[in-house]
Design a protein around this nucleic acid. Structure first.
Lengths: 129, 129
DNA sequence: CTTGAGCTTCCAGTGGCTGGAAGCCTTATC
DNA sequence: GATAAGGCTTCCAGCCACTGGAAGCTCAAG
């Protein structure tokens, strides 16, 4: 199967699929004409990667998860550890964004948003919030 | 004032300050020895930038905010518009992270995390969540 | 005079793609 | 058989906002 169809079936752009080959996440075969030739197992891997990326896992996490997926002797504790660590990162990001949101929304509420130059947002940024 | 002291007083790393000069966010003077020579107003600007960045504004937003800050004829509505748009982006990011968190935490809860290979997290990633 | 800290510039790398150019391959149409 | 369109290939550059490191200059202390 050529890259175009694989792109449609996996939901990943062709550029991304080529990139994943570059960094050895997938290793499609090659046809005589030089085109990449994907097996069903490649598509399955790519879809796996797409879902893991959609959950925010880093590429290196994805590599780990994929190798665990293919390792019949894995222990689910290994997978769970990776996932838990990622969950913590997500929680940290959410907390950081919420804190930004808090400060920013206060400033926005305090600002009249009219034709006059006086602005609490700029004051907050210039004086320390 | 040299970059080291400015770094301490503004809370920004020297590398970042040099970068901000590169992209014309600040324009410190130069001493005869070639060293950057910062005025109080430069430090003020850098601290402003640090706070805006801490609120998650992009560099281009920061450039806009800084120019509004220095423009006496600004209308606070302009500032508020920039801030509101950024707030929306923050809200979108929070929503996306929460959705990831939701899915991921369900998978984690379902996983025993023991020595056996059976793992709902990997199943979820491979079959579609 | 030497040592060490602080400053300079420049280049490369981070993550995860994405855009674009130049050129080969395939398929359909004339 | 020529040609045009579309899909494929590689390679290089760029995105964002820095950050690390090398090579070399300047300055203050001992």
């Amino acid at each position: 199967m050529n890259i175009g169809e694989v792109s449609e079936r996996s939901g990943l752009p062709p550029k991304t699929i080529r990139y994943y080959e570059d960094i050895n996440l997938v290793r499609p075969l090659r046809s005589d004409n030089g085109y990449r030739s994907f097996r069903e197992s490649d598509i399955h891997k790519l879809a796996f990667l797409g879902r893991a990326r959609a959950l925010g896992f880093s590429i290196e996490d994805c590599r780990t998860l994929l190798s665990l997926y293919e390792d019949e002797t894995r222990e689910s504790a290994q997978v769970k550890a990776v996932a838990k660590e990622h969950l913590t990162e997500i929680d940290n990001k959410i907390a950081q964004l919420k804190s930004m949101r808090e400060t920013l929304s206060h400033l926005i509420e305090a600002c009249q948003g009219d034709h006059r130059p006086d602005c609490p947002i700029l004051k907050g940024l210039s004086r320390g919030i």
